[in-house]
Design a protein around this nucleic acid. Sequence first.
DNA 1: CGCCAGGTGCTGA
DNA 2: TCAGCACATGGC
Length: 309
Amino acid sequence: MLEIPAKDFSLQATLSSGQAFRWALLSGWYYGFIGPSVLKIRQVNGSLQYDTSDAALTPERIRHYLALDLDLADILRQVDVDMQVHQAIVHHRGLRVLRQDGWETLASFICASFNNIKRIEGMIERLCQAYGDPVALTPPPFAGPKGPAHRAESPLATAKGGGVNGFRGFSFPRPQTLAAASERRLRSLGLGYRAPYLKATARLIDEGKLRIDHLRCVEYDAAKTALLGCDGVGDKVADCVALFGFEKYEAFPIDVWIERAMRYYFRHKPMTRQRLHDYARQHFGPYAGYAQQYLYHDIRTAHATSVPC
DNA sequence: CGCCAGGTGCTGA
DNA sequence: TCAGCACATGGC
């Protein structure tokens, strides 16, 4: 069991706010992946406790993924410019924008279009089971005298005799794997009409026509333009990928929930998404993406009855 | 059953 | 440029 101090941070708000689709909450612990490394983590007051069987997953790597190096107080001070976002900040203080793998984020949000989060999670999990590699979180050398591992019910934790707590997951498929997948099989996983989009985008990367890792080093506009060249990637998905996968904090993804939240600023006047996007960027500034994530999470959790997590 | 979901691509004006 | 429409699927 290892520990990381984490000030001004909420693991639960961060992992359940719809930016990542592969974290499973089992008996108070979140199980998931950072890149190819499997991780078990929970927050106890101001401290993160975690376990991993991958030596490559250093505390620094975890801190980077969770964006604990950023000065959240400073960021929130910049975007706390009206009552609506102020309330969202009060409700979910500690929510941070993750630094996820770029390819995984791109593929995930292609699947996310015109879809709901429950089904997105299922689609991505089936995609990983079909095309990823099995990865187990192996038991620690000196397992305590705890009772038998609980039976997990999440699809992430199968009963196939995985490591500690029965956890066994699958790594995210590589681009070349999905580029070679058949559209029919992708459809059989429930991807629907997104199947050819995902395959085409995977092929674009596999053929070297989109150097995706390079997008981390370029400006927001250049990254977005490049992402828009992918099949199944429009304005909204490109912004999600830029924000969650490539640290472009100016990105302001507008989906149906954010569109609803934005009506607050325009007294329900009908506005195009382009207009809302322009307004949001000048209203919230260079960390507009943080404002967006707080607004998104707040409006969804306000609909408490129908929102999971 | 009908409606909704972290929309995109295509078409025709 | 922009409104209007089809698109797969499953949860509620």
